[in-house]
Amino acid sequence: MLEVTKKLLDLLDLAPIGDDHFQGDSEDLGFPNVFGGQVLGQALMAASRTVEDRLCHSLHAYFLRPGNHSMPIDYEVQRVRDGGSFSVRRVIARQDGKEILTGSMSFQVDEQGFDHQLDMPEAPEPETLKSEQEMGRLLAPKLPEHMRETATRDRPIEIRPVNPVDPFNPEPRPPYKQSWFRAQGPLPDDPVLHRCLLTYASDFQLLGTSLRPHGKTFMSRNMQVASLDHAIWFHRDFRMDDWLLYDKDSPSASAGRGLNRGNFYNRSGVLVASTAQEALIRQRKC
């Protein structure tokens, strides 16, 4: 396992600080605030620590305030209900006494039932694509010095975008986007950990889908962008150390907000998880 991957696993390994209370460290990925996927992944881990013999099948969360990556985050888990088949937990993430995220997670016993799914869309094989890190190294000479380390840093989640846009000269494109994802190096056989890692990774590459029709990226001037909420549905078992295709679309943008949706497929074409997120995509007046 790569050191950068071990660091991410340690980040998700929360410390208990009381009954159904946990604390996690923060990481600085070079963004102004804590990466939203980190808070989501840690929140799911906190909730999972209070449930036995049931795996998360859905997560719904709201980002309330930007997080500070120089401070730890406290997670309070509330046991809403434990039924015969389902358990529901509410999680509140706080920094400096203020709520930065609130969410609910539902867990289900293993159960058999009807089974169908959408077919996996066509996509080039991941081996034919460059990783974000490789592309960052090519772009580094054109980037401001303070952005070069972020663009070229080692990543625990390898992302290989399909047909990426030129961040310096983005052209309007249809609201569709694909990327291959996998964790760097082999992982333990822990389905809870794999769900938390996918939750962490699912916040990468999603918001930008709603910017594509408008020829904008995170690097475009006068743009204010932020995730407002996030939802995940886990359908079938998967491994994060195998390639997963993240197929995304944005059906609508209006009133300064963009809706983004995604599906994760494994290489055999099995749909393993789905996501949805509304984002702030506000263009400030010059």
Score class of each variant (00 low, 15 high):
residue 203 D to T: 09
residue 118 L to W: 11
residue 105 M to Q: 08
residue 140 A to D: 06
residue 146 H to E: 02
residue 125 E to N: 10
residue 245 L to M: 03
residue 218 F to M: 13
residue 164 P to A: 00
residue 210 S to V: 12
residue 249 D to T: 11
residue 122 E to S: 09
residue 216 K to M: 02
residue 222 N to D: 05
residue 12 L to M: 15
residue 16 P to D: 01
residue 50 T to G: 07
residue 229 D to K: 06
residue 7 K to Y: 15
residue 128 T to W: 00
residue 21 H to V: 12
residue 82 D to E: 10
residue 132 E to N: 03
residue 230 H to V: 09
residue 71 M to A: 14
residue 206 L to H: 02
residue 93 A to L: 14
residue 95 Q to G: 10
residue 170 P to L: 01
residue 183 A to D: 14
residue 274 S to D: 07
residue 40 L to A: 11
residue 35 F to I: 00
residue 239 R to K: 13
residue 106 S to T: 15
residue 135 M to C: 01
residue 166 D to P: 05
residue 1 M to S: 14
residue 210 S to P: 00
residue 120 M to F: 10
residue 60 H to N: 12
residue 220 S to W: 02
residue 42 Q to S: 09
residue 38 Q to S: 10
residue 16 P to G: 10
residue 63 F to A: 03
residue 67 G to H: 07
residue 256 G to S: 07
residue 9 L to R: 14
residue 204 F to H: 12
residue 45 M to F: 11
residue 227 S to V: 06
residue 120 M to N: 01
residue 25 D to L: 13
residue 264 F to H: 07
residue 134 E to D: 03
residue 283 Q to S: 11
residue 255 A to G: 03
residue 96 D to A: 13
residue 30 G to I: 10
residue 142 K to F: 01
residue 75 Y to E: 08
residue 211 L to Q: 08
residue 121 P to S: 04
residue 21 H to D: 12
residue 173 R to I: 04
residue 119 D to I: 09
residue 271 L to T: 10
residue 253 A to M: 00
residue 168 F to V: 08
residue 127 E to Q: 07
residue 23 Q to M: 13
residue 148 R to P: 00
residue 139 L to Y: 01
residue 91 V to F: 01
residue 164 P to C: 01
residue 70 S to D: 15
residue 72 P to V: 08
residue 1 M to C: 13
residue 214 H to P: 05
residue 155 R to L: 04
residue 232 I to A: 09
residue 203 D to W: 07
residue 119 D to Y: 13
residue 93 A to V: 09
residue 202 S to I: 10
residue 48 S to Y: 04
residue 113 G to C: 14
residue 255 A to I: 05
residue 173 R to C: 11
residue 48 S to F: 09
residue 28 D to Y: 14
residue 210 S to K: 00
residue 139 L to D: 00
residue 150 T to H: 00
residue 116 H to V: 06
residue 208 G to L: 11
residue 4 V to N: 08
residue 258 G to A: 02
